[in-house]
Write a protein that binds this DNA or RNA. Sequence first.
RNA 1: GGCGGCGUAGCCAAGAGGUCAAGGCAGUGGUCUGCAAAACCAUUAUUCAUCGGUUCGACUCCGAUCGCCGCCUCCA
Length: 490
Amino acid sequence: MTIQIHNTLSGKKEALLPIEKGQVKLYVCGITSYDYCHIGHARSALAFDMIVRYLKYRGFKVTYVRNFTDIDDKIITRAKEQQTTSEELANRFIVEFYTDMDKLGIDRPDIEPKATKHIDEMITLIGELIDQGKAYPSGGDVYYIVDSFPEYGKLSKRNLDDMQAGARISVNEQKRHPMDFVLWKGSKPGEPTWDSPWGPGRPGWHIECSAMSRKYLGENFDIHGGGQDLIFPHHENEIAQSEGANHKPFANYWIHHGFVTIRDEKMSKSLGNFLTIRDILDHYHPEILRFFIFSTHYRNPLDFSETAMQDATAGLERLYECIAAIDALQPLTSVADTASVCTDKDIQQLEGLETRFQQAMDNDFNTAQAQGIFFDSVKAINRIRGKLPAVPATDDLYLLKSSIEILKKLANIMGLLREDAGQFLTAKKNKLVSEGDIDIASIESLIAERYQCRRAKNWVRSDAIRDQLLEKNIELMDGPDGTTWLVKGN
RNA sequence: GGCGGCGUAGCCAAGAGGUCAAGGCAGUGGUCUGCAAAACCAUUAUUCAUCGGUUCGACUCCGAUCGCCGCCUCCA
């Protein structure tokens, strides 16, 4: 069974057949570094983190390149506002980016090139395009001749005529054709600048990815990815530049993930409806964000809301509760000749876990379906656990423990279930207590008092204590081993 | 206006030409409990926006209609 990937270029799912057997070369457009990252950036980083991990899990060697755009108009403008240099600003937000990525537990790509470190490569590439008559200098800028690339529009499925019908193409006297796009921008006084054969300036946005992907992955490589908003013009232009210069297919597969929306609208600075990664991480454990993001297929829009995050919290806790319960089973109590309590259905369910997971993930990285499979397994595990006698059969115990190990291994591809289950659950409790207006000592002392009341069958006082704590959002649970408690809410 | 996508139970969300339309949340019933809570188990769509067509058979393919979203300008 091969991995099927939805390829934006063909609009269809295709089997992943790398250029070099067993080796996948992946280029992903990273951030423009001028501000804190929002959850849309998180989705991008998380999606490709998952994809890379899955490819590795399936036995591929992966070379993963993700760039930093550290020079562009927004950076220059923002640096001016903050009375600093573009370089300082860009570097500062790269550090902040890493802080967020580390908190989310995202692995570093193999290569993370910065645009400003590859000006020479870009100048070389622009020179090649000019030599081939596919670009022209004009007024200190250099433009790409879109008419020189007959396949222009093949990725975004549009043609030059359609686009010109749209009224929003900016008029620019320097351009021969309104859709020609800039490869090199002449610099204005006070702007960061590099020397070039066409005068001082800086690179256009699209050229960096063509130049850097060629340097690190070659002229033709396997997968190129990014957000859906990059399809046009960014990736379309990259294709025009790279295939125009190299006369070879550029990326074989294009993967584009969907947006994170809020109230069904794309997050954007102009609408002011964006949330930064750290906004979220202030309130939610990183795995909750991951669980939420992977609860939908990567190409679909994902609507952020408190409710959705609460659902994600509940779902993730269900998984952790299951693990914690199995962790708590004592392996030494098992005896070989105890009868098994597992039904064939449960055994089949658990033994099929990894295969079913692979089938889901092979199908264009369907994490939503994969999560469903986790829950199927949890249900089977809980069902068995519920029937377990005080001295369970060795085989049953082994099945439970090994299923949990597989579950954790597979969930790890999405970066989930990495924590110790007990710690995950108590950490949350402690956090909630610290946010409330009662401390653990008072809770414990009231529970101790109630214990005495309950022994004396003083239900009135005992219930009063319970209600008193409930007002503070502390819920009591009487079990055979004493009373435990939790904090209501999320 | 052009192009692309989506519309599945109260909410979120998979699936896919033909046995029961995954799973999560919420709801309901049960186990447990002094009563609860939590947890666990069970259960919840004769139906997949609407209308036509293709087919022995469609939620899944085709066409139209309605609604929503995105791109066409920087954007993950």
